[in-house]
Amino acid sequence: MRVNPGVGAGHHEKVTTGDAPQFGVPYDRAAELCATARERGFDLVGLHAHAGSGISGEDLSAHERLVERVAALEREVSVEFVAVGGGFGVPYRPEEPPLDIDAVAETTRAAFDCEATLAVEPGRYVVADAGVLLTETRVVKPTEAATVVGVDAGMTTLLRPALYDAYHEIRSLAPGAGERDRRACLVAGPVCETADVLGRERSLPAPERGDLLAVGTAGAYGYEMASQYNSRPRPAVVTLGGDVVARRETLSDLTRLEDPPRRHDT
C-alpha cells in the first residue's frame, strides 16, 4: 500500500511528492485501509512511501521523519517489508559535496524501529554519474549578451534543464580546447522554444562549429525523459566499451506507430 507520509523533500517543488495529495493514501487513514484490504481478501505484504527526488544533506531530516512515520504504521499493521523510497541526491555542480551515504544509512537505520524488512530505492544515486550526453556544436553566434552555442541536443534529449531549471556541468571535448580563450556561452538546443537551453552563462573554451560538448550527470532522468517532440528522433545510447544499448532513431521511427486510414476505391 502506498502511503502519503505528509513529508516532502527534493531538489525542486515539482518532485517533492511526499506531501502532495495525489500520492498515496492519507497517513491517518492508512491503518484502517490496511485492515479493510485484508478483510476483503487482499494479500497485503508491504508499505511504501516516498519523500521526493534529489534529496540532499539538508533534507535528511525530512527523510528521517518519513521513515519514523512509516515504521510506526508498520508496528500497527504488521507487513513483510517497508519501502521508504529513495531519491538520494547527487552533486550536479563541481563545488557541491557528495551526499554522505553513510549518514543516510545511519539515520535510516536509527529511525526504522520495526521488525519488517527495509527496502530503499537509490536509483538516481546509482546511475546519475554513469551517463554523459555528447552533443555536437552546429552554430556559433556571437551576441552582446553571450556567445550562443547551438548544439544538436536539447530539451527533447535532456529535459531536466527546461523542466526543473536543473544545472548540468558542460565541458568541451574539442582538441586543444585548453589553449583557447574562454567565452561566456549560452548552450541552446534546436527546438523552437526559449526553454530549450542546456546551460546559461557557461565559461567555455571559444567554441567552434563541430566541437563536441559533454553534458555531465545525465545518467538519471536523461534518456528516460527524452521525447520525439518537434519531430526529433531520440539519440543512441552507447557504453564506454562501444556496445549499442539503444539504437539511434531515424525519421521513419517518428511515424512507425501511425496507422493512416486506408483509401477506398469509389
Rank of each mutant, 00 (worst) to 15 (best):
C192M: 10
E249T: 01
P161K: 02
L254N: 13
A218H: 00
G222N: 03
L173W: 00
D211G: 04
P207N: 06
G222A: 08
E201N: 14
D165H: 14
L198M: 10
Y167K: 06
R182A: 11
G216N: 06
A184Q: 14
R232M: 14
Y164N: 05
V197K: 03
S172L: 02
A188M: 12
G241R: 05
A174Y: 02
A226G: 14
E193Y: 02
L257V: 06
L254E: 09
S231K: 06
E208H: 01
E169M: 05
G216W: 07
A214S: 10
E201W: 09
L240I: 04
V237N: 01
A226H: 01
R256M: 13
L212F: 04
L204Q: 08
V197P: 06
Y221P: 00
A226M: 07
M225F: 11
L251A: 15
Y164E: 13
L254A: 07
R200N: 09
P205Y: 01
S172Y: 00
E208N: 05
V215R: 12
N230L: 13
A195H: 10
A188R: 05
C185I: 02
V245T: 11
L163C: 04
V215P: 02
S231F: 12
L173R: 07
L257Q: 09
V244Q: 07
G219Q: 09
T250A: 10
V238S: 09
S172I: 01
S231D: 15
R232N: 09
A206F: 00
V187M: 09
L251E: 15
G242M: 09
E179V: 04
Q228M: 11
T250I: 03
L186M: 07
A236D: 04
A214T: 04
C185P: 01
G241F: 11
D253F: 03
A220D: 14
M225H: 01
D211K: 00
P233L: 06
P175A: 12
L163F: 13
A188K: 15
L212T: 12
D181E: 15
Y229E: 15
L240C: 10
D211M: 02
G219K: 10
D211F: 03
P207L: 03
D196K: 00
L204N: 02
V191G: 12
D165Q: 12
L213C: 02
C185M: 07
G222D: 10
S252Q: 08
L186D: 10
E201M: 05
T250E: 15
R256C: 05
P190R: 03
R202I: 14
G222R: 00
